[in-house]
Computed example of a mutant assay.
Amino acid sequence: MKKFITLSEKIESHGIMNESKETWILGFDFDLDYNSETAEDILSDIQKRFKKLYVGHGSGGKGFDVSFEGPKKDIMKVKKYIEKTYKNQLNSKYTNMYLDEGTVTKPMTFTFHSTTNAKQFAYDVSNAAIATANVIGKTVEVPLLRVSSVGAAHRTLAKMSKKSKGKLTESAYVIAEWVSNTMIPTPIQFDDESILLECDSADTIVDVNQSLNEENQVQFQDQLNSSMDSFKKMIRFAYENTK
């Protein structure tokens, strides 16, 4: 009997990991006495509440730090809870969240006015050692980002693509992630018309998507990509659900 290969199996066979399999690291620094009763209560709460994501804690002096790891959607829930519940005890300037080094992100596609510009961009990306870039005519694919910070990689790619006069040609949601990370408003093309996605709207789209379960994320992103009217409806939906 012929065996049919599923899309997920095909993706994994090419070494491209689904976002749900990416491991994210989250760290907090608490500015209070490690041996205090308050510290004990906080540690007890977050260890029980986020048992599967909790990595550990430690102290090198007065305060103490706590770390978590897991899928981005779950890690975002931890981040929102701790920042809301213990905002007065946190030393927020030391809060950090990043993609675990060695994990793989989704491929990204850039389009340029000429093959010369495309080749220059691919050379710059590969030379910077942040990705392996493939040139296909005037298009460049950046399939395997192996970096500790997706946001930092996006910002670097933004500078390089601007230098070579290129643009990101991706789905609406991927562009929303891009704008949220780079803080660079970017147009989204729908057939013969386009809309400029501003930073605030991009942040709202990403926040709402991360709050949805996997099935609803797929539906939400499909609606974003469907048409200009559908995209605008999803923008309104996103704002209504972040109030």
Rank of each mutant, 00 (worst) to 15 (best):
H154L: 07
I136C: 04
D222C: 10
T242I: 15
N18L: 12
E170Y: 10
Q223R: 15
A118T: 04
L212P: 12
R49G: 01
S13E: 12
Q47C: 08
Q89F: 13
G70Q: 07
F4K: 14
V140Q: 03
I195K: 09
T115F: 01
S36R: 11
S148Y: 07
Y54F: 15
T242M: 15
Q217A: 07
P185L: 05
T105K: 00
T204G: 05
I188A: 02
K48P: 00
E215T: 12
D65Y: 09
K3C: 09
A131Q: 01
S36Q: 10
V150M: 12
L53C: 05
N216I: 01
Y173V: 03
S67N: 11
D45V: 08
T6F: 06
T182G: 03
Y98E: 07
I16M: 05
N18C: 01
F4A: 12
D222F: 13
G58K: 01
T115S: 10
Y239D: 00
T23F: 09
H154W: 11
F220D: 02
E170C: 14
I188D: 05
T182W: 05
A122P: 09
T111W: 01
F30D: 03
T38D: 12
P71G: 10
M17D: 15
A238R: 12
H113L: 13
Y123W: 09
K162S: 11
N35P: 02
D200E: 13
V104G: 01
L168G: 01
A153I: 04
I82F: 01
S20T: 11
D41F: 02
N91V: 00
